[in-house]
C-alpha cells in the first residue's frame, strides 16, 4: 500500500468512499430522499442497505422508491425502473412531491460555495465571458430551494470555497439570517457540506458554515488553508468517524462494485 510523504500509512479506504459513507449517514430511516447522479446515489443505496432500509429514494427523471440492482450511471438509468413503486415525470416529482414540502433531504454538488452555502454550478468567471462554462442548474436550484434540508457534496480548495460565488445557481442562506425568507423561499437550506476534507454544518443563528469534523489524516489548519474566508470551527471539532467494516463492504460490493464513482 502506498504511504504518504510523512511516512504515515494511507488509510484503508478512499476519500470518495468516506464521502459516500458520510452521505449515507445523513439519511434517517423512513425519510424521503431526493437523489442525484454520483456519490449521492451511492450514499442513498448504502443507507438503504444498512441503517435506513425504509428510506425512499426519488429521482428527478420520475422514479419513486427505486431499488436499483446495479450502479446507476445516470438519473435516467433503466435499472431504476423495475421494482419502483411509481413512475411519472419531472414535473410531477418536483411539482407534487418537492414543491409542497414532502421531500426531507436532497443532495446537490457544486463548483463553488460561500460561507452561507450558496452554490455555483453555472460559470467560473464573468457570466458573459466565462473562464469555464459549467452545466448550469439542472434540478439543483429546485432541490436547494424546496427540500426540507440539503446536503452538499463537493471537492474542496480555496478556489471552490470562496468569499463570493461567481453566480448563485442554488440559494443557500443567501445573505445570511432571514435571507431565504426575504426571497420568498418556503423552507429548507443547507444542513451539511461533505467535502473531500471534512464535514461542515451551519450555525442556526448566524447561518454561517462551520467545521464539524476533519477527515482522518488531515488537520484543522490544512482545512483552513483550503477555505478562502475565515472559517468558523466547532469547539467540539473532531476527526470524521472512519468507515465501518460493514459500511465499506456494502459500498464496495453492492453499491459500486465497478468503481464507477468511487474510482478504481
Amino acid at each position: 500500500m502506498a504511504t504518504e510523504a510523512a511516512g504515515v500509512p494511507a488509510p484503508p479506504y478512499k476519500r470518495t468512499e468516506l464521502m459516500a459513507i458520510c452521505a449515507a449517514r445523513e439519511i434517517c430511516d423512513g425519510e424521503i430522499a431526493f437523489i442525484g447522479t454520483g456519490l449521492p446515489m451511492l450514499g442513498g443505496m448504502l443507507a438503504k442497505h444498512t441503517h435506513a432500509p425504509n428510506c425512499i429514494m426519488i429521482f428527478e427523471s420520475g422514479v419513486v422508491d427505486a431499488r436499483p440492482k446495479r450502479t446507476p450511471l445516470s438519473i435516467g438509468d433503466g435499472c431504476l425502473v423495475p421494482g419502483s413503486v411509481m413512475l411519472c415525470g419531472l414535473t410531477e416529482v418536483f411539482g407534487l412531491l418537492m414543491q409542497p414540502g414532502y421531500v426531507d433531504v436532497g443532495y446537490i454538488g457544486g463548483a463553488q460555495i460561500d460561507k452561507f452555502g450558496n452554490l455555483n454550478t453555472t460559470v467560473i468567471g464573468d457570466y458573459r465571458n466565462p473562464k469555464v462554462r459549467l452545466p448550469g442548474s439542472g434540478g439543483a436550484n429546485d432541490i436547494g430551494s424546496l427540500a426540507k434540508r440539503t446536503i452538499i457534496m463537493m471537492k474542496q480548495d480555496r478556489l471552490k470555497f470562496v468569499q463570493k460565488v461567481d453566480y448563485v445557481t442554488t440559494p443557500g442562506y443567501l445573505d445570511g439570517p432571514g435571507g431565504r425568507e426575504r426571497a420568498g423561499l418556503p423552507r429548507g437550506g443547507p444542513a451539511c457540506v461533505i467535502s473531500d476534507m471534512g464535514v461542515y454544518r451551519f450555525d442556526p443563528e448566524t447561518k454561517e458554515m462551520f467545521l464539524e469534523s476533519f477527515h482522518p489524516g488531515l488537520s484543522v489548519d490544512e482545512i483552513r488553508n483550503n477555505v478562502s474566508w475565515d472559517l468558523a470551527v466547532s469547539p467540539k471539532v473532531r476527526a470524521t468517524k472512519p468507515p465501518g467494516k460493514r459500511e465499506l463492504q456494502v459500498l464496495r460490493t453492492k453499491c459500486d462494485p465497478e468503481g464507477i464513482f468511487l474510482g478504481t
Binding site: 414543491q99 429546485d142 445557481t169 418556503p186
Partner: peptide, 30 residues
Amino acid sequence: EYSNFGMTMRFMAAGMGLPFMPVKSQLGSD
C-alpha cells in the same frame, strides 16, 4: 437559463395555452 422544474413548468404553460406559470424555486438566485 432556468431550473429543470422551471423549464417543465414553462412547457406546461405552453402546452396548456397559458402565458406563464408560477414556481416556488429560483427565488433569490441569479
